[in-house]
Design a protein around this nucleic acid. Structure first.
Length: 796
RNA sequence: GCCGGUGUGGUGGAAUGGCAGACACGCGCGACUCAAAAUCGCGAGGGAAACCGUGGGGGUUCGAGUCCCUUCACCGGCACCA
């Protein structure tokens, strides 16, 4: 036996267009995250989700469904640009070569993508529509340019979205991220915060994904409240604990709070405050989050605030534990019932007042909102915390001092990048008219060819050097104007690509309404957990926007989302070049064949959990392929199935059919192995293989085709009808019944299926071993579970 | 701190509340071989045995890896977010 037949079948599938999307059956849109085509080629981490969805696609096709299983390339991005710079070739050439490499590797693994629907985000015919969506966002006030402190990656030399900063460093390259004041394009994802939470209820995503998205959006309910100050200005705060208002003994404002400048003349210690503010500004994100354990701050002298319920004057501090970017940038501090405020109060010797009974505020802030009642709180005394919240909020509203308020941690999406290899942002800046959209008929606004696309320290996009491209007439007034030179982030093209697959060559619309209605929403989307708060959130946002402007008829793009576990290196370490434990799927294909690779990556363990690669174990799957091969070579000519294994055969059809849909590929393969082993012992017939090969074909399609042909069956195996089991034949005629005495297994008896309780008990009592344990006594109670177990209970 | 998840042989992992360890790797023994590899066959949770065994402790049940309470450990997400 050889594995040389794999190429032959890959060719046949392509020639016969075996995987062309059909339109006639029940639609099934199966999606995997399209890859970024890096120069390293497909790695083993790709093969897990790809093979899994390929198995499902192949199986559903055989079941007669119209499967849309497409593939494309998320090809804009920094690594390509960096390779292009290093090798002095244009990024588009690098992209083309890499795509070709990926495509070849993908075919070598036998994936059944419909290549007629291939998309590439760097294709102007594609990004025309990415730009179109951007203009629509702009038109609807959801894209705006703002000058603000942003995350700047010191190595990529461009800004990053909040979602791209992990533990204070760049999620892509791991370099330090610092704050820079820059003018940036922003997308108002915050306008969709509530709907992004609410609509999670209508989709089938796994709990981890839903929880992570909710965490990231970070909704909290509370109230805003106004505090009068001796400076005359009203200082508004946001709090989730308005019930503790009587316990607010001081206030804290963020170092960036505008009142500091406003109050400059009144502040006796302005210099000290300014120094503190400067120190806070110098801190990187990393320092601000990691090192800020010990509370620091400065009290404002010359200005103080008034607690609106107690009427007492309370001091105001500036401290960097209060963030300008959340709430109002100012808080009321309730040291009795907030850990941070408690620490701060202890350090600065501020009064700590108990307003919810039940804790010991000398020791720690009391945070429980369930058990205690309000104390020292005037008209709130005696109330439960929940009631107190309602009452005080109503009071604030009545007095015109505040209102109920919901806040989100989610920030708007920083959408511009100072790099070359991305979609140009189709905006023209005019002195007179401001930001003017490039007219729709001029889309796509293509990337100009440039001599050098190196990023700059100054944060200017490489495009800004292309003066003849940059300098244009304003489309509105005709005056001199300049193009926006920043490009879009990599997440732009991937935020809507699943729509393009439905109608990938359309040059009048991003996809026709008809195609969208036929195929959307995506029935099943599998992808990595690392994209939960990036691509998955962004694309849900864009889709909701497209829904609002009537481009798509459904508010959620994905019906079901699952995530595969990571493939770790041998020994459980993360795979990395530096550790030298990277597995190249191409090597496995070369050594064992694609079918073995596919089987192993599916057999490796629970699909949703991380699994360590074990090169030793690969050969087990290879042996399995060889066993099936041997079975087929010795097969008896009859088309009848072997009577001895008929029940097992039907059980296998049932289990494989069900397990595939539940991502339980490992147990589906185990069942196929069991059947193969049993058939090997008794000798298989052509009829047995007629079933087995079809069940095997989603996992090991090449072997299935080859043996299918050798046995003389006509047409491609992958085009056959999926086997169905006979419910009457998945049942054994005899069953083994376990006998327990007092819940402990003591014997096992074989009886006809569905024996009556009386017969079961009689047989159990007749067993010698059971008799020994009963020691002559009669059971006080017997429990019979039909066809499974009998438990004889005797009192001690 | 909050949220989510996971703990089962030497290893990856199976088990609608009903015989724990399917299937596979690795291992041991045997066959074939001058020998080894490959292949085939057999064996195995631990323990001499009674028995004990699904991170620990309680509980529900005739019966718990599975359900409930509690506790520990590890992984992931969020986090001076008021």
């Amino acid at each position: 036996m050889t594995k040389d037949y794999e190429k032959k079948w890959q060719k046949r599938w392509a020639e016969e267009k075996a995987f062309k999307t059909r339109e006639d059956g029940e639609k099934s849109y199966l999606l995997i995250e399209f890859p970024y085509p890096s120069g390293n080629g497909l790695h083993v981490g790709h093969t897990r989700p790809y093979t899994a969805m390929d198995v499902i696609a192949r199986k559903r096709r055989m079941q007669g469904q119209s499967v849309l299983f497409p593939m494309g390339w998320d090809a804009f991005g920094l690594p390509t640009e960096n390779t292009a710079i290093a090798k002095r070739i244009h990024p588009s050439v690098v992209t083309r070569d890499n795509v070709e490499l990926f495509r070849k590797q993908s075919d070598a693994l036998g994936y059944s993508f419909d290549w007629d629907r291939e998309v590439n985000t760097t294709d102007p015919g594609y990004y025309k529509w990415t730009q179109w969506i951007f203009l629509k966002l702009f038109e609807n006030g959801l894209a705006y340019k703002a000058r603000m402190p942003v995350n700047w990656c010191t190595s990529c030399l461009c800004v990053l979205a909040n979602e791209e900063v992990v533990d204070g460093v760049c999620e892509r390259c791991g370099s330090a991220v610092v704050r820079r004041e820059k003018s940036q394009w922003m997308l108002k994802i915050t306008a969709y915060a509530q709907r992004l939470i609410d609509d999670l209820d209508m989709v089938d995503f796994n709990d981890r994904v839903k929880a992570q998205q909710r965490n990231w959006i970070g909704r909290s309910e509370g109230a805003e409240a106004d505090f009068a100050t001796t400076a005359g200005d009203i200082l508004r705060v946001y709090t989730t604990r308005p019930d503790t208002l009587f316990g607010a003994t001081y206030m804290v404002i963020s170092p960036e709070h505008p009142f500091i400048e406003k109050w400059k003349e009144k502040l006796e210690n302005y210099r000290e405050i300014d120094d503190y503010r400067a120190g806070a500004a110098r801190k990187s994100d990393f320092e601000r989050t990691e090192l800020a354990k010990d509370k620091t701050g400065v009290m404002l002298s010359g200005v103080c605030a008034v607690n609106p319920v107690t009427g007492k004057e309370i001091p105001v501090f500036v401290s960097d534990y209060v963030l300008m970017s959340y709430g109002t940038g100012a808080i009321m501090a309730v040291p009795g019932h907030d850990t941070r405020d408690w620490e701060f109060a202890k350090k600065f010797n501020l009064p700590i007042v108990e307003v919810v009974a039940g804790g010991n505020i000398d020791e720690a802030a009391f945070l429980d909102t369930e058990s205690g009642k309000m104390v020292n709180s005037g008209f709130l005394d005696g109330l439960e915390v929940g009631e107190a919240k309602k009452k005080i909020t109503a009071w604030l509203v009545e007095k015109g001092l505040g209102e109920a308020k919901v806040n989100y941690k989610l920030r708007d999406w920083v959408f511009s990048r100072q790099r070359y290899w991305g979609e140009p942002i189709p905006i023209i800046h005019c002195e007179k008219c401001g930001a003017v959209p490039v007219p729709y008929e001029e889309l796509p606004l293509t990337l100009p060819m440039v001599d050098s696309y190196e990023p700059t320290e100054s944060g200017e996009s490489p495009l800004s050097k292309m003066r003849e491209w940059v300098e244009v007439k304003c489309p509105k007034c005709g005056g001199a104007a300049e193009r926006e030179t920043d490009t879009m982030p990599q997440w732009a093209g991937s935020s809507w690509y699943f729509l393009r697959y439905t109608d990938c060559n359309n040059d009048r619309e991003l996809a026709s309404r008809e195609a969208i209605e036929k195929w959307m929403p995506v029935d099943w989307y599998n992808g990595g957990m690392e994209h939960t708060t990036l691509h998955l959130l962004y694309s849900r946002f864009w889709h909701k926007f497209l829904y609002d402007i009537g481009v798509v008829p459904m508010p959620e793009p994905y019906k079901k989302r699952t995530s595969h576990g990571m493939i770790l290196g041998e020994g459980g370490e993360k795979m990395s070049k530096s550790r030298g434990n990277v597995v190249d799927p191409g090597d496995i294909v070369a050594e064992y064949g694609a079918d073995t690779m596919r089987l192993y990556i599916m057999f490796i363990g629970d699909f949703e959990k991380a699994a360590a690669w074990a090169s030793q174990a690969v050969k087990g799957c290879r042996r399995f392929v060889e066993k099936v091969w041997a079975l087929s070579e010795k097969a008896k000519a009859t088309l009848n199935v072997s009577p001895a294994t008929e029940v097992l055969l039907h059980k296998t059809i049932k289990k494989v059919t069900e397990d595939i849909e539940q991502l339980k590929f490992n147990t589906a393969i185990a069942q196929l192995m069991t059947l193969t082993n049993e058939l090997g012992a008794g000798g298989a017939t052509k009829g047995d293989l007629y079933v087995l090969l079809r069940l095997l074909s989603p996992f090991a399609p090449h072997t299935a085709e080859e043996l299918w042909e050798k046995l003389g069956f006509k047409e491609l195996c992958c085009k056959q009808k999926w086997p169905e089991y006979d419910p009457r034949k998945v049942i054994d005629s005899e069953v083994e019944i376990a006998v327990q005495v007092n819940g402990k297994l003591r014997a096992s008896i074989v009886l006809p299926l569905d024996s009556g309780d009386g017969d079961v008990i009689k047989a159990a009592l007749g067993d010698a071993r059971v008799a020994q344990y009963l020691a002559g006594k009669t059971p006080d109670r017997t429990i019979v579970v039909r066809n499974k177990i009998v438990n004889l209970v005797i009192k001690p």
